[in-house]
């Protein structure tokens, strides 16, 4: 073993595990975003954490890294709050230093505690490193997922497609929207696209600029763009900001937009009574 303190920890492993577990008892491990965490789950998590930490004394640094990585993985996917684990390592520090001061002489104590602090810092750093690494991975995955979800073009009728936009529009997303819009038009052979901004919380000059750009590009590839889902407050902002949407056909709801789009492609929706009074099917 590398040092006195680790040897000491190893020799008195069961004692420390016992003491540490006791000190953790007042400790609540919480889960992010959920209030539910049963006592059993908490205990299981604590035990696993304890074993991971004590294993690290015996394992090579490579193996230890793997173990910590696996542990951090479970932490994140199960949504445990990370700060609790740091705090419980600090609890270990108190427990160990308390015992060490009883077992070593004053002269030894300084060296031993320095060694121990080094070791503990290493553990904390490693846990934090692995944790943030995995969190970054999760974030990258979520970003990809967001991108996939960000701007679907849905064909609703022959020659008519709808693009519902939910959430704020930034430059990056605007480019994505534009790309999906144009590719989709070609793919579905759409003549009219409805851009539904019901889910866009704020329309400022920049967002409007992006939408205008998109609609001009849509016109260039040979389709027409209708802007639907304009809420009263959006209408107010647009006028107050002096944004010129004259080139646009705008409708308040998707429903009205679809009616207008059908009209543009020479179709209407009729009830069956209307159809009968018109003398059956027109086609």
């Amino acid at each position: 073993m590398k040092s006195v303190v680790l040897q000491h920890l190893k020799d008195n492993k069961s004692l420390y595990i016992e003491e540490w577990r006791k000190s953790l008892e007042q400790h609540e491990f919480t889960k992010q975003g959920s209030t539910f965490s049963s006592k059993d789950m908490q205990q299981e998590m604590k035990d696993e954490f304890i074993s991971v930490v004590f294993q690290s004394i015996e394992l090579s640094s490579e193996e230890n890294r793997d173990a910590v990585h696996r542990f951090a993985n479970r932490l994140i996917y199960n949504g445990w709050a990370f700060s609790e684990f740091i705090r419980s390592l600090q609890a270990l520090r108190r427990v160990v230093l308390h015992n060490v001061s009883a077992n070593f002489t004053k002269e030894e104590f300084v060296d031993v505690s320095v060694e121990f602090e080094d070791w503990l810092d290493e553990q904390i750093t490693r846990l934090a490193e692995e944790f943030s690494k995995i969190q970054n991975e999760v974030m990258t995955m979520q970003k990809t997922a967001m991108k996939e979800l960000s701007a679907p073009l849905i064909p609703v009728f022959d020659k008519i497609s709808v693009m519902p936009i939910v959430g704020t529009i930034d430059t990056k997303r605007a480019a994505q929207i534009m790309e999906n819009l144009l590719e989709g038009i070609i793919e579905h052979r759409a003549q009219v696209v409805l851009i539904d901004i019901t889910g866009v919380p704020v329309v400022d000059t920049m967002v409007a600029h992006h939408i205008i750009k998109a609609s001009e590009a849509v016109r260039l590839v040979g389709a027409e763009c209708l802007l639907v889902g304009i809420r009263p407050e959006i209408a107010q902002t647009i006028v107050n900001l002096g944004i010129d949407l004259d080139a646009f056909t705008t409708k308040s709801t998707l429903k009205k937009g679809i009616e207008a789009a059908l009209e543009l492609t020479n179709r209407t929706i009729e009830t069956s009574e209307q159809m009968q009074s018109n003398g059956g099917l027109k086609r």
Partner: peptide
């Protein structure tokens, strides 16, 4: 009538400020 303008071309044109 202009037909078959590719998406990439349309985007370039708009970015250049040419909206035809």
């Amino acid at each position: 009538v202009l037909t078959g303008i590719q998406p990439a071309v349309a985007i370039t044109l708009i970015d250049m400020g040419v909206s035809l």
